[in-house]
Design a protein around this nucleic acid. Structure first.
Lengths: 335, 335
DNA sequence: TTGTAAGCGTTATCAG
DNA sequence: CTGATAACGCTTACAA
């Protein structure tokens, strides 16, 4: 039996409406009454019941976050940011881990809707028609992270993957590498796949190198896949002098394979990653990688969402945040 | 304007109580009426409003989880488990990241209470009187993870840290190591600190080795601290042949320092970690470590909590789960 | 077995 | 500026 607005009203000798007004600052209340009420609230340690409040306002102060994998450090850091700034706006996070499965994503999408979340942040490896349908059918504010969702008429935020891959590939060519392999995420699944490829291609163009399609591989986000790809390369004696991976994990998979087969990184092969997750620095050799402003991405995403919730931001668009090429010890210049 | 119980009642030509009864299966309803109602619910796609429901039942189907750091892979995996089994019991998780700060923890403790969560799982580096006070003053079901909280009359679950440290130290002595350093978490902060120390000491006893207190260091959970500790050891030419760290991160910090200073692991020094987080396998050399059944720990914690919520489990106690010594490449036998 | 009606703790409308 | 009072959508005695 915790204390309610009624108790406060009674003890302060005012109506519950007046109490409501002072706690919400919604309508003018004379100073002396206000003080009296505030004092009683203090004394009683009264806290408004958010459930009752939600029932009438239709606002839950809850934001749903659907992600494919909490244990992915990239996502963890994103979550940090989301959670932290949400708190400053007095929102709470309901966390949903989908494991990337469509079924589970759909489950959560519906769950969050019935839980009356005011908006959601959505991260998925694959974007499908089921998602589109959901987002179209509900006018729920949604922002997507690390994915350009303007086609769905949703806001989204990410770095410019084209530029990023272009930059690292370019750098490698400048350093005298002649043959470079690209291990990118996936085929159709990853929206940035095409951007990665284009950036990679463009760098070849810039440096007048022959673009060899057989040097483009599909790592499927997996360390193990990257490992296998490099193993094949070794067995076929097709090992290039540099490998660009579009994920730190895949870079590590590649390096692990190289090391396990007696090659040295970066002496024999240069390998670069993507994201600058924690492990990029922990690992030896430390990874050359594309650093994303992960925290900022999360922070902007959640701010964007809150703006949408408040109706302050009507037009949806994609936001690009700047990346940074971090040169560490896993790549070297041949010159 | 979503559809409510009233709409269903009207369309099915029954009272709202009847509808309520069929959705909750709370009181007998004649078969034909039940069928009629179910059909209407289907047709209308009616979903009960959980907020209204909570207001009257005082149940939120929400569980609060307070953790110090999402980006810690150990915690991430724990969260995985918690989230997953909570879902099967139809509970949702409200995630609170405290960064280990007491202020923030207290904030969340109170927040969760006013949000009417039905119970909480609490993870903290330091346990303080403020926590105790909170837990004593509220009868909220709470279970603590990776910490023995029986002193607080709370349930808790973890592996047996004494045994774990004993086992790895023992193994190292058996392998012919003579001097072993221990880098453990913290001083007063970590409840398991004493257990680690005792396990370490006991192993010396078992092998009739002189126990040198100056070989016990305080790594404060930090990779960097471990790095510095080893650096000192190197400078003082006091490097032992084996180092037991009570965290994978600290083990990696130690190895990084060794490698950066030209030592080889495990050729020159053996180093072991704790937890078997993902990085233990990714890293080269792969880490010898104590594997904890992290998923199980999380799963048991949440099940325990739900039992408590349902009043099925009255007596609080600490649950030990079995650990496993995983021998990989960062340690070697001297024999 | 079914319906009526009284809450749950707020906010919001409308008089005064 | 203040106070009744009607919602909000649901559960649950209490009657019928």
């Amino acid at each position: 039996m915790s204390i309610t607005i009624k108790d406060v009203a009674k003890k302060a000798n005012v109506s519950i409406s007046t109490v409501s007004r002072v706690i919400n600052d919604s309508k003018p209340v004379s100073d002396d009454i206000k003080m009296r009420v505030v004092k009683v609230i203090e004394e009683l340690g009264y806290k408004p019941n958010p459930v009752a409040r939600s029932l009438v306002t239709k606002k839950s102060r809850l934001i749903g976050v659907i992600i494919p994998d909490i244990s992915d450090p990239y996502i963890a850091e994103l979550l940090n940011a989301i959670e932290e700034v949400a708190k400053t706006y007095d929102y709470d996070i309901i966390l949903c881990n989908s494991y990337g499965s469509l079924e589970s994503e759909e489950h959560y999408l519906n769950l969050l809707r019935t839980k009356q979340v005011e908006g959601m942040i959505f991260l998925t490896y694959k974007l499908r028609t089921a998602h589109k349908d959901f987002f179209e059918s509900t006018k729920m504010p949604v922002v997507m992270v690390n994915r350009d969702a303007s086609e769905l008429n949703l806001s989204s935020v990410s770095v410019n993957h084209f530029d990023a891959v272009y930059e690292i590939t370019n750098k490698l060519f400048e350093d005298g590498h002649e043959r470079i392999a690209l291990i990118r995420n996936g085929k159709t699944s990853d929206v940035f796949g095409p951007s990665h490829l284009k950036g990679f291609e463009k760098a070849h163009e810039t440096h007048h190198k022959y673009f060899d399609e057989s040097m483009v591989f599909n790592g499927a986000f997996k360390l193990e896949r990257a490992y296998d790809i490099v193993k094949q390369l070794i067995e076929m004696k097709e090992l290039p002098t540099a490998i660009v991976a579009t994920t730190d994990s895949m870079a590590i998979g590649a390096i692990n394979c190289l090391v396990d087969h007696g090659y040295k990184v970066p002496e024999d092969v240069s390998v670069s990653g993507f994201y600058d997750t924690k492990i990029a620095q922990l690992y030896r050799p430390q990874l050359t990688t594309i650093k994303q402003p992960i925290y900022d991405i999360g922070a902007i995403a959640i701010r964007l969402l809150i703006k949408q919730i408040n109706g302050d931001e009507k037009d949806k668009k994609h936001f690009y945040l700047p990346h940074e090429l971090i040169l560490r010890d896993s790549t070297r210049s041949l010159k």
